[in-house]
Every structure is written in C-alpha cells, then in structure tokens.
Design a protein around this nucleic acid. Structure first.
Length: 593
RNA sequence: CGGGGAGUGGCGCAGUGGUAGCGCUCCAGCUUUGGGAGCUGGAGGUCGGGGGUUCGAGUCCCCCCUCCCCGACCA
C-alpha cells in the first residue's frame, strides 16, 4: 500500500480523552476513532490488525474442531425472558422495539440463540458433540465504558458454544478449547496467565479466565510462583494452615480454654466519635487495624447476617455467597442500610441482636480479645472474646487475598497482579439446555439434556492488550502475527540529482517485496525524513526498510527491527534485493517476532 | 447512580462582560531533505444545545446533552 493513497492520519499530540497507552497509541496511529462512549470506528490500518487477530482465532478454533457460523446481533427479548437473563442482565442490555413494539436486544452474548438453534436441529446422540462459534459484534451498555477498547460498549467477540452428551464429553471439549486458547494468545505475543475464576451471569461451575498481564488491567488475580496456582481474586482462597504467622491454630471456637478466656478482661465500652473507618478507630485506640474485628452486614434471602474478618482485611463477597449455598447473598449498600434503620452503621459488633447468621473467616479464631463495634453509634468495645462475648455459626474463607497470603496448594507466598481478561471459558452444564429444552435421545431411546460449554475471546480487547504489552515511547511495536503490514518501506529521495533514481529503485523494491508475498506499507509521501521515521515508529510495523540516496550509492537498503531497534543492511545487486524472491521473506523479517 | 473534571477550527489549548485567538495539521508558493524543517500567503469555528440577565455573553444565571476520571457495577 502506498501511503500517499492510504486513508490515514497520524496525530502528533496525544488525544485528551485517552488515559491508557493502548487507547492513546491506537488513536494516534490512526487505527481507531471514537464515535460515542465505548464505540469506535476501525480505520483501514487498525482494521487490518483486527482482521489478523480474528484470523488467528479462527484458525485455532477450526483446528480445535469448532465450526464457524453467524448469529444475529438483534435478538428477540422473548428468548432472554425464557432464560431469565432479561432480568439478570437488566440495563446492561441495549434494548429496542420493532414497529410492532416487539422487544429486541442487541446481543451481549448468545447462549440463548445458539441453544435454541441446536435444540431445533439436533436430536440424536449421534449428532454430538458439536462445537459452534462466531466472531461477531457484541453490545453491553456498561455503566462505565473506559480505557478505549479495553471496556467498550460495542466489541468484537469470538463466542463458542459446545454441546456434549455428558459431563465427560464436555471435559474433553473444554480441554481442547483451553489448549486452543493458549495457542491463540501465544501467537498474539501476549504474556498471559490462566486463572480460576467466577462464572458471573453465564453460570456453571468450572471456568478459567485468560489474563493478559498488564498494569492497566481491571482484574486482580493471585499467582503462586512455586506451584503455578493462579486465580482471580474473586475466586482465590488462601491456605487455612497459617504457615506464615505465629498465630496458633485453634480448631473450634469452643475449644478456647476457660483459663485462656479468663486472661482477657471483661468487655469495656469506649467512646469513639467522629472516627470514620477502621484505621482512624485503630489509631485513636492505639491499636493496629488487625486487632479490630470488622463486622460487615449482609442480607441472605432477606435475613440480616454478619461477615467477620480482621480489620485489615476485606470481605470477598463471592466467598461469602459460597459459604451460604443456595441463598441469595449481597452485602448491604447505602440503600440497604437505609432500608434497615435500626442498624448502627459503622458500629456493628459481632453479637448484634438483629443478625440471624454470623459467618467468620478462620483468622477470627485467634485467641484473645477484639476491638469491635458496640452496636451503638459512636461507641466501640475492647476485649470482645470469641466463645464468651460472641458466637460464629459458619466458618469460611472470607477475606480477599493480598500479596503474601499463603497459597492454598503449596503454602508459598502468593502475589497479586493485575490483568486484562482477554478470554474466559466455562463448563456451563445444563442451565440453558433446561430452559430452552435442548435434548437428545441416547442409544437406548432415552431423552437427556445436552451438556454445554461456552468460550469467549474479546477480540477487540485482545488487540488493545497486545498494544499495552508491545509499545514504547515512540509508538506501537506490533508482533509480526498481528501487524497491519509486514514491512514499512521508507524512501528518502532527497532533492539531489539522484532523487529520481532513488524513487524508481524504491518502487522496484516495493514490487519485489510484494511479489515475494510480503505485505508492504510504502511511504512514498513527499515528506521530510523525520516525519517518515516518526510515523514508522508510531505505526509499528515489525520491520522498517529505508532506501535513501546514500544507501543507493553504496548499493544497500537499511533495515531496522522496530521492537529491538537493531539495524542491518541488505545488499542490492543489479537493483534487486540480494536474497532473491525465495529468501526475501526470511531475510527481511529476521529478528522480528 | 454518588463524587470530581471538561466541552472554543481536524488535533492540542488560551481567552475571567466589550472586534474569537495560539501551536500543530491542511492548502499555495519559495527554500530545505537521514529523526516530527524555515519563510510568506491562505483555508477552516452557529465557542455542545436551549432559555435567561445585560446596551453587549465564549465569559454571568437556569435547564438539558455529551465526554473524561474515581467509585459502585461488570463476560
């Protein structure tokens, strides 16, 4: 492509609304332009990247045995009402009506449509398993779209859905997809980790997220460098065994000896006005936050409960829900407190009379007294002792993991890192088969529900994640697999007598490269060398080839590998690139990953 | 939805009641040509929208819209 004809404008200044590098650079490099919050146009250069990412995904899906199809973006709401997700997704869905006032949504995902489709086509165990995917635009009216492509309201997603006869079959399919995902992200040049995760609205039990390691990521995940355990912090648990503390383990609250309890003075009420938060209370009382007992109010099916953790820890809401299986659990927010005016918010103690269930983290089981709420505004108590002054009904890992916590598998110290979720795979089971009646008949003539898995990759987000990892101060440095072009050819004709010769030599090199099967961006513009070099670095093709008057005179072109900055020269023989058509590709792209 | 900030030419910004400006970009000409070049001339803006105050509003007041950041939330 000749740059003089390319629909491209690069920007010298950073766009004011771009916070993260991927957003900033993709806009500056003329790849994308914002149209509305969370919605972007893909201009020709960016579109080539998107198509390459799509193609890598497509190849790996096909290789894993999945079949590509295309489902509609606009889907009848009726289908979503059947699964109940009309409600659970709620305002996250873009909604519209046709002229007859029939409700539609712009699909945020496609389990309903695909399940209905498969249910209508397949009836026999002989048809299974089947694995179907599409690469299609998805719509989610996020509360806060941000970071350019990283959280858009419109985004390209590869979504695959598998249907197996039973759980064993699902596990085989799941493993194949899991492996395919690894290949996709490796080919894209990403540093990523596969983590255990929460299922969210999709449903199901076993699932894994693929996290591109990045400081701007929106997800925290824990990782153990010793045994490779990795999990989203939402799903992560720590080892109970307290390998890394001096606190002795006590099996049951009731096992605290009477003598031990007697060592703690009785409960003493203290006046603590105008002290917002654990830290200020701790400071006022001359204690560490970890000596305070944090009592977080929650509702479980309408009942009030308390979650107890040490004052220096946070409650993991997912873990809390897991501790109370079958019950709808949510932490009390401001509205929740407003609806229960009797609760002394900020001063709740573990024995609060209104609470019908108390769940506590094992770390609450340590001996000695706690500083905690007095169930009375502006007051706390000292010396609240487990088994004497308050009781716990359910013990469960409740705390959000922090760096240094013990790995649940090997006990080594975990670290918490940030990542961009670029993929997520789920073993769903029969959630959608049930509501949409996706059944098959087995070899004995009996009817069974199909067992589903689903597998997503955010393709547009993937492109952004790649830029987050592959850039420097000057611009993007595309991995070869995703680069819009293989080679960026720059001609510097100058104004000397040789200008015409330089240009015609570059034209001929351009033709040679293309004839060798390379995708070449040819900067044939009448621009100064500085402009051309700066744009080449910004646009980020893996290899730059420069032909100027001096080089032509010496019979060489210069080559620069964008990512490493390494430079070398390729000889011209008789005006042709010396490696010849067969060796040209390997020579030009050497050193560019 | 809560908190904070911003909408002025394609991009980045200044303008704090009195003739809408600057840099970059873009166009023309001349000079320049190996890391975002210089000079000259030019194009381009209903100052987000509506209402109000005023002799006079980009500027002050009210309402609305859009966008960005933090939070809540979220495959």
């Amino acid at each position: 492509m000749r740059m003089s004809r390319l629909f491209l404008r690069t920007l010298r200044d950073d766009p004011a609304d771009a916070e993260v590098d991927s957003h900033r650079l993709l806009v500056r490099a003329g790849c994308i332009r914002r149209v509305a919050a969370g919605m972007y146009s893909w201009l020709p250069v960016g579109h080539r990247v998107l198509r390459k990412a799509e193609q890598i995904v497509r190849e790996e899906m096909d290789a894993a045995g999945a079949q590509e199809l295309l489902l509609p973006i606009a889907q009848p709401l009726e289908l979503w009402q059947r699964s109940g997700r009309d409600t659970t997704y709620g305002p996250l869905m873009f909604r519209l009506e046709d002229r007859k006032q029939t409700g539609f949504c712009l699909a945020p995902t496609a389990e309903e449509v695909i399940t209905a489709t498969v249910a209508a086509e397949l009836t026999s165990y002989r048809d299974l398993p089947v694995n179907l995917y599409q690469i299609q635009w998805k719509y989610r009216d996020e509360l806060r779209p941000r970071f350019g492509l990283l959280r858009g309201r419109e985004f390209l997603m590869k979504d695959a859905y598998s249907f197996d006869a039973d759980l064993e079959g699902l596990r085989v399919t799941y493993k194949a997809m899991y492996d395919a995902y690894h290949r996709v992200f490796e080919r894209c040049g990403l540093t990523f980790r596969t983590v255990e995760a929460q299922a969210g609205e999709i449903g199901g039990d076993v699932n894994h997220e693929f996290m591109a390691v990045a400081a701007v990521g929106e997800d925290d995940f824990v990782w153990c460098s010793s045994c490779d355990y990795a999990a989203n912090v939402e799903a992560a648990r720590r080892d109970h065994a307290w390998h890394h503390t001096e606190v002795p383990v006590v099996d049951e609250a009731s096992s605290l000896g009477d003598a031990e309890r007697a060592e703690v003075p009785p409960v003493e009420k203290v006046h603590t006005p105008d002290l917002p938060g654990i830290d200020s209370v701790a400071e006022a009382l001359g204690a560490e936050p970890s000596e305070l007992l944090k009592c977080i109010a929650f509702e479980a099916d309408g009942d009030l409960g308390l979650a107890l953790v040490p004052g220096d820890r946070e409650v993991n809401e997912y873990a809390l829900a897991a501790a109370l299986p079958g019950r709808a659990v949510r932490l009390l927010d401001d509205d929740g407190f407003a609806g229960r005016p009797g609760i002394p918010k900020g001063y709740i103690g573990p024995g609060f009379a209104g609470a019908t269930i108390v769940v506590a983290d094992p770390s609450v089981r340590r001996p000695g007294g706690w500083i905690t709420g007095a169930d009375e505004i502006d007051h706390h108590v000292r010396n609240a002792v487990l088994g004497r002054d308050f009781e716990v009904q359910v013990w469960a890992d409740l705390v959000v993991i922090v760096t240094g916590d013990a790995c649940p598998r090997c006990g080594s110290a975990l670290s918490v890192d940030r990542g961009i979720e670029v993929g997520h795979v789920f073993q769903i089971g029969t959630k959608y088969s049930e509501v949409l009646d996706a059944r098959y008949t087995d070899d004995a003539g009996e009817s069974h529900l199909m067992v589903m898995g689903c597998y997503g990759i955010g393709v547009t987000r993937l492109v952004a994640a790649v830029v987050e990892e592959h850039h420097d101060d000057a611009g993007i440095a595309w991995p070869a697999a995703l680069s819009p072009y293989d080679v960026h050819l720059i001609v510097l004709p100058g104004r000397g007598d040789a200008a015409v010769d330089v240009t015609s030599a570059a034209d001929s090199i351009y033709d040679e490269m293309r004839a060798a099967g390379l995708e070449v961006l040819y900067d044939d513009r009448e621009a100064s060398p500085g402009v051309k070099f700066a744009d080449a670095d910004l646009l980020g093709m893996p290899v730059q080839v420069v032909l100027g008057a001096k080089g032509l005179q010496r019979g060489v072109v210069e080559r620069k590998v964008r990512a490493s900055g390494e430079r070398d020269e390729i000889a011209l023989t008789g005006g042709h690139l010396s490696p010849g058509p067969d060796g040209l590709r390997a020579t030009l792209l050497s050193g560019a990953a």
